[in-house]
Each structure stands twice: as C-alpha cells, then as structure tokens.
Nucleic acid binder design. Structure first.
Lengths: 365, 365
DNA sequence: GTGAAAGCGCTAACAT
DNA sequence: ATGTTAGCGCTTTCAC
C-alpha cells in the first residue's frame, strides 16, 4: 500500500532562473547576495524575488559551502549538555553566533566521552569554519589545536601561547569564597570536589587558592576529594553523606561547582547536619537551580555571557582574511553571590546580599 | 606582526589519488567506500590507504552531501536544552543515530522561541535528511510536516494521521499518579501546572485523566494553573508558595513535570508546609535531580530510551528507498516511581518501591 | 545590467 | 581492476 510519492525535488536556483527568464548567475546575485560587482535592475530583481518566493526556493547549503569554501557554522566542543552550565554555554554561544550569521553545531558526544581530539576531528569533518573548545587540561585535542589545526580554535579554559583563549579568574573566585567563609566566622573549612576536577586547570586553581587563602588566615584547610565526575549530583551526595558521618571536622565547604554543592547539601542534611547552621556551603557557576533551592546556594558566578560573547568574537575575528594577530588572552572576573547557604544568621532563608565586583577584562598582546 | 601563515589547504581526494598514482574514482571507492561494482586489488588499496593516512585525508562533507544528495544528518526540533528532559532526549537520539552512521544537528533556537515552522525550515536549510520533532500542539510546523515536508519527519507527541509518531501514554501516567495519591490516603488532591502546559496535548491529557480518575474515587479534584513556562522552576516555586499561603485545600499534588514539582516542593516548604506530611507531590519525567532531592520525588517515568530509539528507527526507515508504509503510531507506557515525596509513613526518606508495569508498544496500520 | 563558463570535491554509471 | 565522464547546486570572474 503506497502512502506517498517520492519526495518532491527541491527548487533549485536553476528552476528559479528559468522561470524568471534570467541566467542562474543573475538569480544567484539577487537571492544569495554574493558581494559582486554585479548590479541588477530593480525590475529583474523583483521578478526573480517573486518567482523564488512562489517556488519556495532555499539555497542548497552543501553547494554553497563547497563553492565558497566556508560553511558559516562554528563548532562547540564542551562538556555534556546535561550539565546546566554547558547547556547555558551552548545557548549563549549559539545566540551570539546567530547575530553574526553563523550557526552552532555541537559535538555532543552522546555521553561517550571521546577524547577531545576526536571531537575536534568530528567537528572539522562536519565542515565547521572554527571551533570553540572547553579546554581545561593538557589533552591531545588541545595539543592538536595548539600546533595549528586546520581551522581556528578558541579555548575556554586556561591560557595558551598559540591559541586565542578566554578564561575566568577561578583563583580569585576561590579566594573570594574562602574569605567569605572566614568572614561569616567559619574556622574549620574544606574544599569538596570530585576526582575528575583534580585533573582540570581550574579545579587545581580553586583548590590551591582556596587553601592558600585559608592558610593566610591562620587556619588549616581540609580537602575532601571523592571519586566522581563533574556533573554527578548523586555521587556528590553520597560522598558528602559519608564524609559527614565519618568526620565532623568542618563547618564550611567550598564545592567544585553548584551541582556538587547541591549534592553536598543533600548529603549533609541526610547525615543530620544543617546548612548553613552546621556547615556553610558555597558552589561555583550559579546554575539556575542554585537560587531556587530550599536553602538557596551561595555561589561564585562566572560572567558566562561575557565569556561566550568574547569567545565568539575572538573566533570570528580569526576568520577574517588577513588577520594574523598573536593569540589573545582574555581574562574575566567572577563575583560571589551570597545566599542562605552561607547566612550568618540563618533565621530568614532569602539571599541577603549580592556582592559583585566590577569585572575586569584585559587583553594581553 | 604576523602570527601564522594562512591555513594549510586541506588534503583532497585528488591529492591522494595523484600521490598514489591512481585515478580519483579509484581512491574514492577505497576511501569513502561508495558501494560500487568496483573491486580494487589489495595492493592498490593499501597504497591508497597509506597515502591517505600520511596526508591526513578526510572527505569533504559538503561535496559528498552535494553529490550524494544526502547529508547523513538528522535534525532535532525540541524544547530548550536547559530543560534536562530535552537534554536527555537530545543525547539519546544522538546516540542511536550515531549507531546508524548519522549525526544529530539540533535546532537549539538560542532561547529565541521561534515557531516550530521556522525551526523546521532552519533544519532543512542546514540540509538534514530527516527531522525528529517534539510536537505537542497544532502548530504551523506540525501542519507543514503533515501536509508533506520535503524530508521525512517523526513526531514525538500526539499521533498524526499522516506522519510517523511516537507517543507516551500520558493519560495512563496521570491516572497512575492519581491512584497513587488516593492509595496513600490523600483526599484533597489537585493538579499543579504552568499555563504553557495547558496548550499541550499531553498537558491536557494529564489534566483530564487526573481529574477523571480522582472523580471516579468520589473526590472532587482541584486544578491549579499558574502563569509560567514548562521548565521554569522559579515561577513554579513562587506560584506554589502563593497557593499554599492562600489556600489549604490540598494534601496531594500532581505536577506537570519534575521541574514544576521541584519548584512546587520548595514553594510549599517556604510556606511552611511539609512534603509529604502535609502535601504529597508527584512529578513527571524522572529527571536526574528527582531522585537526589532532600525529599526524593515520586514521578511518572516515561520510557525515554525506548521513545528515542523508536523515533530514530521510524525516521531511518522512512529514509530507505521504496519505503512507503502508511504512518506508524507507536505508543509507549509510563511507569510510576514512588519515592519519599509520597511516602505514607514519612519517617525514613528513601524510595520504598518502584512499580514498573510492562511496557506496551503497539503499531497501528 | 546580464550571460557565459569554469570549477569547488566528490560519486556513480559506464567504458576500457 | 582501473579510468573516463558527467554532473550535484552554487559562486565568481570575465566578456558582452
């Protein structure tokens, strides 16, 4: 039993041209606006436009890409989109790219945890003109990009000598968090993080600077790493619960990120500890859920909008012909958003202050 | 100051062929495995393979797409990836597609809330061979797909007469949830949902069947809609808080989805109500966070893996030449996962049972 | 102001 | 077993 005819062949430029009685080249100039010396008469233009509209013409991207040698797409190689931080990042990048006429294609990886080299290759094979890459460690992909990939790459992560990069001052963030814990009177403070984060540049930075800052206050910091991945709330919860049951040596915790902090708060609570009364908790990223929790979470907020905006413009700049600037390094400053999870007087559970230092954004040439 | 030379031109099939001393066509058969009558001698094959590896040859997708008239990509038009349900859906679809040699391109929409017609067009313009579309309402996009788009489309949503669709029995889910609330002794039960959901097929289904089921038990159900979007936890929280402060006519709540339920629980708690003691709460979707909450959430779990798997195979089937079956409708059954948010005796906060009816998957011809 | 022609990189039917 | 040929749909330089 036949249901439908084979698909209607798509309208091509040739069809439009024929129907309008002009040459394909003319139609091309009118419809796909190649900047050309060609000027067309208003009459012809309108006629072609009309015909195109009537026939529902849409340019064939593959053909355009092949001919123009650029696809007007940019690839994003980041973490799994299940992590709200990366979901947000993807959305922001896409938004800024669209403003410039580009489209975003994601190397989603289907949770297969390919190495980032494969991600890069996949993206390039898909014909992207450039790549925004979350790069937090010395990986094969990073090395590949650094020694000169066949399309421009921008890192979001730690600075590179040979590739544009945009980075956030995670150290400062950790310092602010540490000082905040001390400010509210906590003296037995620790850093709680999944093992995966220890391999990351920013993970180490957070850890180091947190400890340094705490020590500068004459306090001995504790570090509580647990076996787990960055976005795994349930591992964080289990680990925190275990930790709380086997040790009571802390009253303040900086967590690697908000997801970890959310897990931690739940684990602590299951173990009978109260947040912030017994333990103050701080996260990183300000994911949407953070402000909605029963105990809203104090967090170090990265200027993600600025980060994505910058990454996009750096990349698009590289795409301009005859642009051979040395690599840029753009640094952005985090801010701390204080909420109930670090409230001094936990009687009313709303956020009490938002401390936002002016953002620095310097350029290093 | 010059930083790097213009990009190295990519290795093309012609380069490889020349270097290996064979014709491009031969190289094409060897490297890009076009199914052809052509058989090559092992010697030549190896030589070409070696050269290709040495030169780092990768096929130009645009050229292949243009020539083959298929891109080996499938588009996904669904909700925003910030919603964990859609993030999961995207990941699953991508995974199944990869298994079949296809890639997933997402119409992410950058939070611009384009109508789905525009989404479809965007995807098609990007050259996808087929589209998986979340379709829960009579929209322009749905109509466009139903009257015959120029590539196959599969709906995830409610059944269509002219397009393949996969759907979950949301009605059954709502019924199970309603009965569960009654079972645990709740008598003043309501349905809590964002206004956006009322426009959705499944939203109405949940609402209707919930009310019907409740009435069948001789109880008068309440409906609490609030102004808001599907994935907006904060609006749900505010609405629930307001509701709790202005009315105490409920002790059991079915929420449109888990995100709404999470917001609801927080709002209720802020208003001084306890979950499940004062109000039992149920969600839909079983998002990862649901099981991790302080009060783990009872939820109606959709067989998302099965749904995505099915959508992918239906779509790929349509792509086969000479396949003209009438539209398929595949229905999947939800199950209810009972956790602490509906515990009868809320003394210990772990999940106490997982009730999973066998899944039905029928086909309608 | 418009048309002609060449070709982007690859594939598939056909010839040898 | 390999080479020839003819484009896929579009852009761009150049000629008219």
């Amino acid at each position: 039993m036949e249901h439908k005819a084979p698909e209607p062949k798509r309208t091509t430029l040739r069809n439009v041209a024929a129907e309008a009685g002009v040459h394909v080249a003319t139609a091309a100039v009118i419809l796909n606006g190649a900047r050309s010396s060609t000027v067309v008469s208003p009459g012809t233009r309108q006629r072609v436009l009309d015909v195109a509209a009537r026939l529902g013409y849409r340019a064939n991207r593959a053909a355009q890409t092949l001919r123009r040698q650029r696809s007007m797409t940019i690839g994003l190689a980041a973490g799994p989109v299940q992590n709200p931080f990366f979901a947000e990042m993807a959305t922001l990048c896409e938004s800024f790219l669209l403003d410039s006429g580009y489209e975003l294609v994601m190397a989603m990886d289907a949770g297969r945890y390919l190495d980032d080299k494969a991600l890069l290759e996949t993206l390039r094979a898909r014909g992207v003109d450039g790549i925004i890459m979350w790069s937090e460690r010395e990986t094969e992909g990073r090395r590949l990009a650094e020694k000169g990939f066949d399309c421009p790459v921008v890192f979001f992560g730690y600075p590179s000598e040979s590739v544009d990069s945009v980075t956030a001052d995670f150290g400062l963030g950790a310092q602010m968090a540490a000082e905040h814990l001390v400010d509210i009177g906590r003296r037995r403070v620790g850093y709680f993080c999944p093992s995966e984060s220890l391999a990351l540049w920013s993970g180490n930075l957070r850890l180091q600077r947190f400890c340094d800052t705490i020590r500068a206050h004459g306090i001995h910091p504790a570090v509580f790493p647990y076996e787990g991945r960055l976005g795994d709330v349930s591992r964080a919860r289990e680990a925190a619960e275990t930790l709380a049951r086997t040790s009571d040596t802390f009253d303040g915790l900086l967590c690697f990120n908000d997801l970890v902090a959310i897990g931690a708060m739940m684990g602590l609570r299951r173990a009978g500890l109260r947040v912030p009364d017994d333990v103050a908790v701080i996260g990183f990223d300000d994911v949407p859920m953070a402000s909605q929790l029963d105990t809203p979470l104090t967090t170090v907020d990265l200027p993600l909008v600025e980060i994505c905006q910058t990454a996009v413009s750096l990349l698009l700049r590289r795409l301009e012909p005859n642009y051979f600037d040395p690599p840029h390094i753009v640094r952005t400053a985090p801010s701390i958003i204080a909420r109930a999870s670090t409230l001094e007087n936990p009687s009313h559970p709303e956020s009490f202050t938002v401390q936002t230092p002016s953002r620095i954004s310097e350029r290093n040439t």
